[in-house]
């Protein structure tokens, strides 16, 4: 019991389950999943599908934050990636051709990689503070995207491209599967190589890591490149969903939601220890919350306040102070005679 209770993912998961439960009680069809033509449908499936862009961006953000950094440019990178892909598809004679679409996607991802590498260069080589370094691209990136599309919202009608966001594979949304692949690859890399622990070391104590011979510079640089590519993929999913490259709307505020997801998942903004599973749960909490706003019929004027209120609640419940307080409370229920120390904490809580 205590072991489960103390696990760092305990509270995030409790929050997620509570959110789903509230929705289900309010309107039972929330948890209904139906099978049509071998494809799954239902509010929960939609959440999984719609969470894909945020999932990808937040995974990249997790790694960057672990190195003590932050990447504010992810939304702009999404816009550039979408713009590049759609401009190529639009410019080709044959938008429906699978080869064209694949080429467009690969080029878009390469451009995203370059953007990530630029951020990484500014942070790890030039030594600019991450928040400033990535702010440059955050502000300039959408301009670049507008340049690419020539100032228009490029729209295309391409079956293969639309598949990215709305297609299905083995009964599940393709976009969701992209997210799953990213999660699995990142978890495997973390487990099977030493990258996880070395990233944490660099994030916790960069100088000590350098003295121990860790390639801090490459690790930090790499983190921004990963973040760039993942944001690029998210940009493709976004563009595919609306079948257009909208440089002004793609990924707006997604950097903030991604940071929120990372924090909800228990990774500290101070860098160091990170949790991919935590970020996944964090993303699902945010996406479920967004859906519940629609689903429960919160008016659009009230929805930001509602969102903010719930997030505040979740964050407070997960705060160490509150947790200690709750732990002390449950400790007291189990055995009489709490220490003076626990008493104080309960009062604070």
């Amino acid at each position: 019991m205590t072991a489960v209770y103390k696990h760092r993912l305990f509270w995030p998961i409790v929050s997620l389950i509570t959110l789903i439960a509230i929705n289900a009680i309010a309107r039972p069809q929330f948890i209904k999943i139906t099978m049509r033509d071998g494809e799954l449908y239902g509010p929960l499936i939609s959440i999984l599908r719609e969470s894909a862009p945020l999932m990808l961006v937040a995974l990249g953000m997790t790694i960057v934050i672990a190195t003590r950094g932050i990447d504010l440019s992810v939304g702009a990178t999404m816009a550039v990636s979408g713009a590049v892909a759609l401009t190529i598809i639009d410019g080709s004679g044959d938008p429906g051709n699978l080869g064209t679409v694949l080429t467009a996607c690969v080029v878009a991802l390469l451009v995203s990689l370059v953007l990530g590498a630029w951020n990484g260069f500014l942070v790890s080589v030039v030594g600019i503070q991450p928040i400033i370094a990535t702010l440059v691209l955050m502000l300039a990136g959408r301009g670049v995207a507008l340049l690419i599309t020539g100032g228009f919202i490029t729209t295309v009608n391409s079956e293969p491209f639309a598949f990215i966001a709305s297609g299905y594979l083995v009964a599940l949304p393709f976009a969701f599967l992209i997210g799953v692949v990213a999660i699995v690859v990142m978890s495997l890399v973390e487990r099977r190589t030493a990258l996880g622990v070395l990233t944490e070391a660099v994030g916790i104590n960069p100088e000590a890591s350098r003295l121990a011979g860790v390639r801090s510079r490459s690790i930090i640089w790499g983190a921004y490149m990963v973040s760039g590519v993942l944001a690029g993929v998210a940009g493709l999913i976004y563009a595919s969903n609306i079948r257009a490259a909208d440089a002004n709307a793609a990924g707006v505020f997604i950097e903030l939601y991604a940071i929120l997801a990372v924090v909800l998942g228990g990774t500290s903004l101070n860098g160091g220890k990170f949790s991919i599973a935590g970020t996944v749960v964090g993303v699902l909490i945010i996406q479920t919350l967004e859906s519940s706003i629609l689903f429960l019929g919160v008016s659009s004027a009230q929805s930001p306040v509602f969102f903010g209120f719930v997030v505040a609640l979740v964050v407070v419940v997960q705060s160490p102070r509150m947790r200690e307080g709750l732990a002390a409370l449950s400790g007291r229920m189990r055995s009489r005679g709490p220490g003076a120390r626990n008493d104080d904490k309960v009062e604070v809580a």
């Binding site: 099977r192 190589t193 030493a194 990258l195 622990v197 070395l198 070391a201 890591s209 121990a212 011979g213 860790v214 390639r215 690790i219």
Partner: peptide
């Protein structure tokens, strides 16, 4: 830590 970085990221102990 130092031994691992000397071996390289991909040759995890």
């Amino acid at each position: 830590l130092a031994l691992q970085s000397e071996r390289g990221v991909f040759r995890r102990i």
